[in-house]
Design a protein around this nucleic acid. Structure first.
Lengths: 207, 207
DNA sequence: ACCGACGTGAAACTTTCGAATGATGCCTCT
DNA sequence: AGAGGCATCATTCGAAAGTTTCACGTCGGT
């Protein structure tokens, strides 16, 4: 018997996953969570697999929750389940310790198979995802640091360097410094181009 | 008895909505559709309400499907159900003849109430959505001219004023002039903010 | 025929951004 | 202990971007 925890902020999705797994005799849903925090709190030892959404309406996001859960010993495996298959999301999830990365539009059989695989301790990456990861391995090292990503997000919201500095309690010089690094890593030379590039590769999420 | 058709390309969401409505004695799901085309085909007279997702993986999108369904006489009411609440999406759906606009993260009771309201012929806009529509009504006349939209698109791609001028066979001064008008209409004061604002209201589609 | 609104274009001027360089302190990994 | 990555801050300068103000058509209306 495989015990599941479903973490998703959409009640409809929780109900759907619950209904799906209810038809399988060896799977049982033992809990639900509507936020990242809740997911961490409910991932006690009696849970075998956590189905984790990456996007939550507010608070802790799925990747962080995954990290928190996995850093404990005897932690359940985490299967990430999301709408998007952007590089940044996938990489973040895998790096956070996810055993698998599934898309919400996947056929039910695939979900169920992935749950069973994860319960056996296997990694269950969708084929498209695996290919993407491989491509990422060969890509130049251009991962933004978390601080840089934070700055870039504010830039994408249209804030000026001064605004960003105030918001993050930094000097304007520091913001510029971060931007230089961002430009270098993204191989661009203006803030709008950086935003365009980041959107393309899924490093930032539109409002 | 209210007969429902569920149109969504995510099996999980279909299952979730099905499970949700199964608990209500006066609601019955009489069909499912995984694409816009399928939704149109299955919206025969025996259906009272269509739950319509706006985003489909490919082919006909929800707004077009809604239009097709509603243009027939004796057509079922269409409740649009989506992840995003951008102005453009909402406006498009309502204009296509949707009786309601709901977000997927809405609580189940709200969904069910909306279905019943739609079955009675009432309009069931989520409060947040209604407010947004109203705001749109009162908003200053901020429609961009086609030339302005053209410029803004290039800005969103990260091009400099000089690049844009060259591409559109203009002087740099003219590009700036267009930008001034764009800023005024969007009520912002920088190019990146303009792009953010345009993305928010759906005037620009990200790559 | 006149007026005004609007899209378009343009100059001069101010502010912000980005490039280049350098420096400090704090981590982690080796 | 040393190397390297990251975050922080500073100064200087030239290049963009943004502001202000003006001008010229075209079009619709009273």
């Amino acid at each position: 018997m495989i015990r599941l925890l479903i973490a998703d902020d959409h009640p409809v999705v929780r109900a759907g996953l619950g209904a799906l797994f209810a038809t399988e005799p060896d799977l049982i849903v033992v809990g639900e969570a509507a936020s990242g925090e809740e997911a961490v709190a409910r991932s006690y030892a009696g849970v075998d697999i956590v189905l984790m959404d990456l996007q939550f309406g507010g608070g802790m996001q799925g990747a962080d929750a995954t990290r928190r859960i996995r850093e404990r010993s005897g932690a359940p495996h985490v299967l990430v389940l999301t709408n998007y298959d952007t590089d940044a999301d996938i990489l973040g999830a895998v790096e956070a310790g996810a055993a698998g990365y599934l898309l919400k539009d996947a056929p039910p059989e695939e979900l169920i198979a992935a749950v069973r695989a994860a319960a056996r301790g296997e990694s269950a990456l969708a084929p498209t995802v695996a290919g993407r990861l491989e491509a990422r391995q060969n890509a130049p090292d251009d991962a933004l640091s978390s601080r840089e990503a934070e700055v870039l997000t504010l830039v994408a919201d249209g804030m000026s360097n001064r605004d960003i500095a105030r918001q993050l309690f930094l000097s304007e010089a520091t913001v510029k410094s971060h931007l230089v690094h961002i430009f270098t890593k993204l191989q661009v030379s203006s803030r709008t181009a950086a935003v365009a590039s980041a959107r393309e590769r899924g490093a930032i999420r539109s409002a």
